[in-house]
Write a protein that binds this DNA or RNA. Sequence first.
DNA 1: CTGAAAGCGCTAACAA
DNA 2: TTGTTAGCGCTTTCAG
Lengths: 357, 357
Amino acid sequence: MSAGNVTSNVSKNIDLHNNSGKNMTIKDIARLAGVSVSTVSRVLNNHPDVSEKAKESVLAVVEKYNYIPNTSARELGKASSDNIGVVVRGMSNPFYTQIITAIGSKIEKAGFTMVMQQIGTSDNEIMTAAMMERDKRLQGLILLGGKLDYTKEQMHCINVPYVCCTFSNEYGNLDKADYSSVCIDDNQAAYDAVEALYKQGHRKIAVLLSGADDGSVSQVRYAGYERALKDFGLTLDKNLIIEINSYNIADAYEGTKQWLKKDRDFTAIFAISDNMAMGAMKALKEAGKKVPEDVALIAIDGIEASEYMNPVLSTLCQPMEKMGCEAVKLLVDIIGGKSHKHITLPTTLREGETLKS
Amino acid sequence: MSAGNVTSNVSKNIDLHNNSGKNMTIKDIARLAGVSVSTVSRVLNNHPDVSEKAKESVLAVVEKYNYIPNTSARELGKASSDNIGVVVRGMSNPFYTQIITAIGSKIEKAGFTMVMQQIGTSDNEIMTAAMMERDKRLQGLILLGGKLDYTKEQMHCINVPYVCCTFSNEYGNLDKADYSSVCIDDNQAAYDAVEALYKQGHRKIAVLLSGADDGSVSQVRYAGYERALKDFGLTLDKNLIIEINSYNIADAYEGTKQWLKKDRDFTAIFAISDNMAMGAMKALKEAGKKVPEDVALIAIDGIEASEYMNPVLSTLCQPMEKMGCEAVKLLVDIIGGKSHKHITLPTTLREGETLKS
DNA sequence: CTGAAAGCGCTAACAA
DNA sequence: TTGTTAGCGCTTTCAG
């Protein structure tokens, strides 16, 4: 039997069994619409050279059978794409939400398509990025919240330009000319935080951090803390370091709670992140310490939640939206042929209510 | 020239240009390892029938050239998969984080692979799910935080079994036998919340919600609020409804703030979600209302953040981990041939500090 | 144990 | 404007 003749039969037949089993392919649509697969492909991709008639009949069949093309096959068949990959470290980290929104709309505006992948804190973002690059034929990559110690060897599997957003490569050996970055000066932000406390008269300033030398942003901010102490003529007291080996609010709470039991002599805490400060606040409250009357508190980040704490957290805010926009702009420029760049954005102090009593 | 003979030349050649351009394919690896593509495929997929020798040489080349297979092609080539799709509505909704973790490990344990996709609040989860089904050749789907009004027509494009997690189909027309669900009894939870307030002596109970008839969980919980009022002989007062048309903390704050200006007569607020309660608390604080002395507050959800508020939020906690596990169990059973089921899980009251004064 | 070859579903020349 | 056809990179029979 010739394909053409049985079309209506097939049509009826399939109609009855519509969606009853496996998914339709572009071939099915072509057959049912009485055109070739390339024509179907053309209308699906909005190519200009298609007759109204063909377009209509294809669309009708697509509609009727609820056809949805297979993206894998699509991506495979295409020689290139306009995809920009975004890999985000830390599922549901509130800090990234605003940045992602900014990145998304900016990518759209630039005429690219964003394909984002969120990964767990312990997953490997480089591998994820490398896979995305291949699967999605990326033109470029934005890494959100990665590590500070990438090595050239590690990044070898990435062959498209990438920009690090919210972090840089202080502890790695990457060549500045091989990647871009947008971030705040974390060391300086920590310095500013300590300075704010110092100006309020505090001399015994504890620090709540993840690790003092864990190669993460915690280490950079801790370095800023140290530098500030030195500048202000304060001596570093190991007893005033609260190290919790994570960025969790629960761990910050527990860690601070345990530390408070040691009854150290202090009047203020600098937490390296808003989230951790929130954990600390609860511990302080339970220990009967009033914030800011008994203990002043300041952090870095400026996430939305910390604005809803009672008292409102004093913190150095990162310019999240701006960061996202700059990251995209940078990447698009690089894709367009310009060279890599490194941007440092300023933070702004949110006064809040945990600083001054 | 025969391929075999030039291998070492090619190897050297490519070595020099390693990663200098496009990505390697399985063919390149095969050539460099001196085996066929099928052998490479076998070692990459841990098939048993490969000689140690072949395995080693392939792995060596893979290692050396940092080869990463193309997932799209892989998925395409495979006739089936052991993938279970999870589509999550609402990026970085803290409420889902714990559930996702539970789902992930449970899927792993069941011998399946989780492939997750997060979408924005305004995106279409059905379409996302349908595309995943095709691209990833899913065996089943878990929908996290979807809408309550799916229709049969909409779900037509999904041909694998799916389970709705944290919500059900109260406002749609789905056949109970065609899908599964795991959720709490939202109506009852709202009822319980109001009852808790009532038992504390409150008679003028305001409700903070997204919409009273928006077809979302807000509506269900509002219905529970109404039912409770009726049961307790309280009259519904439209003036005590704070409607904000979103689930945002910022909108809840702003909405409550505006509402408070009207100076309504009330002694308690039932917020339909923890997040919204957090916004309300700030508004109350700024209006000089003490919680719980002046105004009692209770919500539903039990997210981590609300435990760190000051005062700690009183709320009806959803059994997040349990929900995730049950969802997977259900789905795996269905994939295994069993029929669809609908599970309702109980909530537990977190006393907190905003209920009793 | 290994290789050749036929797809998977789609895109993109190339002809017609 | 259309259809034919050769890939995209991988998996998987089926022989050997």
